[in-house]
Design a protein around this nucleic acid. Structure first.
Lengths: 225, 225
DNA sequence: TCAAAAGTGTTAGATTTACACCCATGA
DNA sequence: TCATGGGTGTAAATCTAACACTTTTGA
């Protein structure tokens, strides 16, 4: 097994997940109290180790599924974090990933079983090891991504109001947007379809529900927001 | 040594470098024929293994120094590449980095000793393992970076003409720019200083040499190009 | 009847793009 | 003298940003 590179040393490889959700008008991530040593009890991202028979991406997918029970999540690599002493116990290099989920899709029972909570991205406490760094980089990458591709729908129910969508963009970018300018831009995007359905949960008058049409998007790749 | 994570398997960790240079009006990278098994003789990025007492970033810095003899290079992580079979011999996960160097700073003798060549980014042959993927991702990230920060100077001599600078941007973006519009934008950037020096190597009339003033740039962080 | 969110256009300013000729010099 | 790359400004078009009132309805 060591025929080629035996002279070099090996490391443990883990994955850590920054799971973004949008709830109560706020951008949040899932964190919990670490259940293993070292660092037991500290706030931490959810993670896992890479097994010998799976790719690093697959390990992240598996870890996400393990935590959320959800498949086909939008997921992107944040990068490798490899300081020598980043793990107080051993040499562990970790590859961080961020994922976008619709909070409503995540069974709250399952969430509690794993002991993770949705925490406002602006109120993240000190986390285990270098996890704050991972969160910061993930957040920047996600912002950048959202500015160039319509990935925000991954954080919303399949039917959503324009107000919800606007609040989402505001939460991600950390700044308020002009309602009329926002709606003007949305109207130009053919892949955001207005339905005849009305949502009455957040206003007496009711707001039209919209949906993202992936097919139209793929045919007409001219997105900028 | 295995007190915490002994039950999990370890992997070899390597770094691979995409080294960008700008020469003859073209964006190029350094590649060479692989000198070790498996894959001996195939075109490949230059890389190395991460040692037990160095961070992954440090391993990349060391590898870059080893190849070029240069320190303080502009370097950014591209990401981790971790498919199970990416290395035909063993399980090796690699973290790719890109770096920007001024071709003139690289001793050609040293380059030949390492058996690497400058190859036009648009004419990269099939590379060992997943190295083409790494190059493609690095190129996109570098383009993106150059569009938002003045890192292009890292690819030029400390004194350069506006034509050189324009050709650099054209090579990176793969499209021609309007000379007057380009110079108009440059003129607005106070951190690009005109010197009284004239370069006569590329025209009879001679062109003014400019330099990047890092101090001015740091004080006036309003860059967009 | 009123509070609360939904919905809707216009205009000024800023930014971006297109475009063509003269200059200085060495060969 | 001429070929070569260096250097310069203006106008149209596009994009962005600022801004306020009417509608609907349940309580």
């Amino acid at each position: 097994m060591t025929k080629f590179y035996g002279e070099f040393s090996k490391v443990w490889l883990s994955v850590d997940c920054i799971i973004f959700g949008f709830d109560e008008g706020k951008l949040k991530i899932l964190i919990g109290r670490r259940k293993m040593d070292p660092g037991r009890g500290e706030w931490s991202l959810y993670g896992g180790f890479v097994a010998s028979d799976e790719s690093v991406d697959d390990a992240a997918t598996r870890t996400l599924y393990d935590l959320t029970g959800l498949r086909n999540l939008y997921m992107r690599q944040v990068g490798a974090f490899g300081n020598v002493d980043r793990d107080p116990g051993e040499r562990v290099v970790s590859v961080a990933y961020y994922a976008l989920i619709n909070v409503k899709d995540y069974d709250d029972e399952l969430r509690r079983e794993h002991g993770v909570e949705w925490i406002d991205i602006n109120e993240i406490p000190q986390l285990y090891s270098d996890h704050n760094e991972m969160v910061n980089k993930a957040r920047k990458m996600m912002q950048q991504k959202l500015a160039n591709e319509p990935v925000g729908f991954r954080l919303l129910p399949s039917l959503f109001t324009l107000t919800q969508l606007q609040k989402l963009y505001e939460a991600v970018n950390g700044e308020e947007l002009d309602k009329r300018n926002f709606r003007k831009r949305i109207k130009e995007m053919d892949f955001i379809e207005k339905t005849e359905l009305i949502d009455k949960t957040s206003s007496k008058r009711g707001a039209h529900l919209y949906r993202f049409n992936k097919r139209v998007y793929n045919e007409d790749p001219t997105f900028k927001l």
